[in-house]
Nucleic acid binder design. Structure first.
Lengths: 238, 238
DNA sequence: ATCAGGCTGTGACGAGTGTCACTGTTACAG
DNA sequence: CTGTAACAGTGACACTCGTCACAGCCTGAT
């Protein structure tokens, strides 16, 4: 039994222990069985590029395990990270549905397990399974929402500290806190954070240093501790 | 026969002369008839607010005639325009599909005719008509695309002139040109343009003045003439 | 005609931040 | 243990652009 990149492959969605409560994972069994027949399961190492902006859509990827980074790059090489995709989410859905080129690039950030479904198979599947089609629509609407949120963050904020504060709060959302504050794991470099909030690496370093000095939040290694959440909320103007 | 706000209402989608080739308008007749039964047609004056960000979704609006402005506003009153919606497009789709609050505000920019469909009716309609559901997914994927485009514009560009150039090129896309250049009608103030590209009114005025001086483009009244398209393309770095 | 209100055009000024250049720190391979 | 590369921290500087302030200019109402 091969387990490439340290992953144990789960071949069958129906008995999959990774199943989340989101999107395609929790379809009724009849639809899930149909999906199971047309999917291909594969494992990828960290840093693998699933698709590149500009390519014609080959199909969709369902992320079972790991993290995937979605980004776009400008002509002069500047990169903007759109999203870190979590297990249970689908990649390449809008390009596949509308048959337009992928407008973003997807790259694994960790070793990942993914299910791939070819475009033709997938569209046929959607036509035959109304519940799945509705799920797809819901998934797309979430993508829209997160995109709109990022537009707000980029377009309506006045400063880099404000955008960084917004990002930290987003991460903190739904996490529990103890007496020291909210403790979160982030596996991102300053450079990557800069690419998310659309600023430079130096500004992120400086701003985080500023937050540390003011005892608002501390990022050490891959551990972020938010000590003063109200201060962050004040920064975003909420 | 009342024709409010100078509009002549078209009550029946099947015989509608406004039908575009996009989205719900060109559904097969069987689905269109079903849609016709659950929709409410209404006319609105310019400046009418269809829904506000934060409200729970009541349903979707299909724009038959007129223009609608989609925007979000920050806590401190700054406004960002996301899109000017054209006839044939659907409003409030993602909020309705995912049953989350509208995260944008929709306001008519001209007298408009709209079809409204209640949420429950619409979701039932989607479940029963697979073709319509697929259309809805396609529509959502277009919304995503335009959102991603705006993210690129806001996050990856270095300067206001670059963003303005990108906007002008977007407007020029698909328009014919004569010897004087590409002539486009835009019914937007400098203020509104500023809110689209996320800058200040003064910067738009100054940049347009600069474009005029360099004979790149001239905006006079509501007529925009693009004289030197290559110069704009060079500005966006393409 | 007169006035008000919205839009456009312009100047001055300073905060914010991108860029460059460098040092310090950590992690990991040989 | 050492060398190397990636990442983090920091200072200096220029430059963009947001902000304030005000002057023309239209359009429509009175």
């Amino acid at each position: 039994m091969g387990s490439p990149y340290g992953l144990e492959l789960v071949e069958n969605c129906l008995v999959c222990k990774l199943r989340t409560d989101s999107f395609f994972c929790n379809l009724p069994n009849s639809s899930l069985e149909a999906l199971d027949k047309i999917k291909f399961t594969a494992a990828y190492p960290a840093g693998a590029v699933l698709f590149v902006e500009g390519q014609l859509p080959r199909g969709i990827y369902i992320l079972c395990k790991g993290r995937v980074k979605l980004s776009t790059t400008s002509a002069d090489g500047k990169t903007l990270i759109l999203k870190i995709v979590q297990p249970g989410e689908v990649l390449g859905l809008h390009a596949t549905v509308s048959n337009t080129p992928y407008e973003i690039t997807a790259e694994t950030a960790q070793p990942c397990q993914l299910n791939f479904v070819k475009r033709d198979d997938f569209l046929r599947f959607l036509q035959q399974h109304g519940d799945a089609c509705l799920k797809a629509a819901q998934h797309l609407s979430r993508d829209c929402q997160s995109a709109y949120q990022q537009i707000r963050s980029l377009g309506l904020s006045h400063s880099a500290p404000e955008r960084l504060a917004r990002l930290l709060l987003e991460w903190a959302h739904g996490e529990g806190a103890d007496e020291a504050g909210t403790r979160i794991k982030v596996a991102l470099t300053h450079e990557e954070i800069a690419q998310i909030i659309g600023t430079s690496r130096e500004t992120v370093t400086r701003t985080l240093g500023d937050f540390r000095k003011k005892q608002i939040a501390v990022l050490k290694g891959s551990t972020l501790v938010i000590q003063n959440k109200p201060a962050l909320e004040k920064l975003v103007g909420a």
